[in-house]
């Protein structure tokens, strides 16, 4: 009886896989690629919804402040000059606005997940991405 119940729950989860689950998987790939050697990645975000998604990723912890964080995932305008942290955009407009300083961005458009890494800024932060993500690196003008 327990086995049947467990199977039922698993099937339900699979069928009900939401954009949040997809996003969680993408962020997990992004963060583990940027910090391949870190066992715990401290992330700061100004978006409470994003915090919730990120907190559910294994090896990821939400930092209390920007100073403690390994990476900042921003959704609103931010004083980029105040930090030398790695910054990742959580929306196309933010991505476009801070394209000179951020290492990349992830956003949804027309129901499709879009991921972009900015080549110049990756080099600046000395980040080398695995081959699986190489296709998402761009020289963005």
């Amino acid at each position: 009886m327990k086995k049947i119940l467990l199977l039922f729950i698993l099937v339900s989860i699979t069928l009900l896989a939401s954009p949040q689950d997809t996003e969680k998987k993408i962020y997990k790939t992004i963060l583990s690629s940027i910090f391949p050697k870190k066992s715990t990645i401290l992330v700061w975000s100004d978006n409470p919804q994003k915090q919730k998604i990120l907190s559910e990723i294994k090896n990821v912890k939400i930092a209390d402040s920007e100073e403690d964080a390994d990476i900042l995932i921003i959704n609103k305008s931010y004083d980029i000059n105040a930090t030398n942290k790695k910054i990742f955009a959580d929306g196309y407009l933010v991505f476009k606005h801070y394209k000179d300083d951020i290492i990349g961005g992830f956003y949804w458009q027309k129901g499709r997940p879009n991921l972009i890494f900015l080549k110049k800024n990756l080099i600046d932060h000395n980040i080398s991405l695995p081959n699986t993500l190489k296709n998402y690196i761009e020289d963005y003008d």
Partner: peptide
């Protein structure tokens, strides 16, 4: 021509 979630010229879309 979309009225929402509009893309910009030359913006990449993951398809």
């Amino acid at each position: 021509g979309s009225k929402e979630d509009k893309g910009e010229f030359n913006q990449r879309l993951n398809v």
